[in-house]
């Protein structure tokens, strides 16, 4: 519909405004004739979710090992959602959102990770 107004290309936008030394902020778009990536993302998230569920419900490993594994599976699934569905590498010119995302993941990981870690000592106290 508005195809004609849309004259600027990905490369033109990239050339227009960016610092070419920051390579990892270069946007990447993928266009496909069939939503293969989306189906892969959906099936992947289902597999990761049910893998975590069955690991926990069958108590296949010690508690701490299981907790580490299911949190890793959750982090993988977050990365899948970000990459596949949230198009984290897309942007006009530069994908600037990647820098604050790294920062906030670092803060969140530190805050929650440290809270979990400190509570591991609770059994020795009470």
């Amino acid at each position: 519909m508005s195809e004609s107004e849309q004259s600027i290309t990905v490369d033109e936008a990239y050339e227009q405004d960016n610092d070419k030394s920051i390579k990892f902020l270069r946007p990447r778009f993928h266009a496909e004739a069939f939503p293969t990536v989306q189906i892969f993302g959906y099936v992947g998230s289902l597999v990761l979710t049910f893998a975590a569920y069955f690991l926990v419900m069958n108590h296949v490993l010690p508690v701490l090992a299981l907790l580490i594994i299911i949190l890793t599976l959750a982090a993988l699934q977050a990365a899948l959602q970000l990459g596949v569905f949230m198009h984290v590498q897309e942007g006009r010119g530069m994908a600037w959102q990647i820098i604050p995302l790294y920062l906030v993941f670092l803060i969140a990981f530190g805050m929650v990770g440290m809270s979990i870690w400190i509570m591991l000592f609770k059994s020795g106290v009470s």
């Binding site: 195809e3 936008a13 897309e90 942007g91």
Partner: peptide
């Protein structure tokens, strides 16, 4: 050459995504 998707085509609208 790959066209920029419509949501990024306008600079101001694209800024709102950021």
């Amino acid at each position: 050459a790959q066209k920029l998707p419509l949501e990024f085509a306008d600079e101001h609208e694209s800024l709102k995504i950021t």
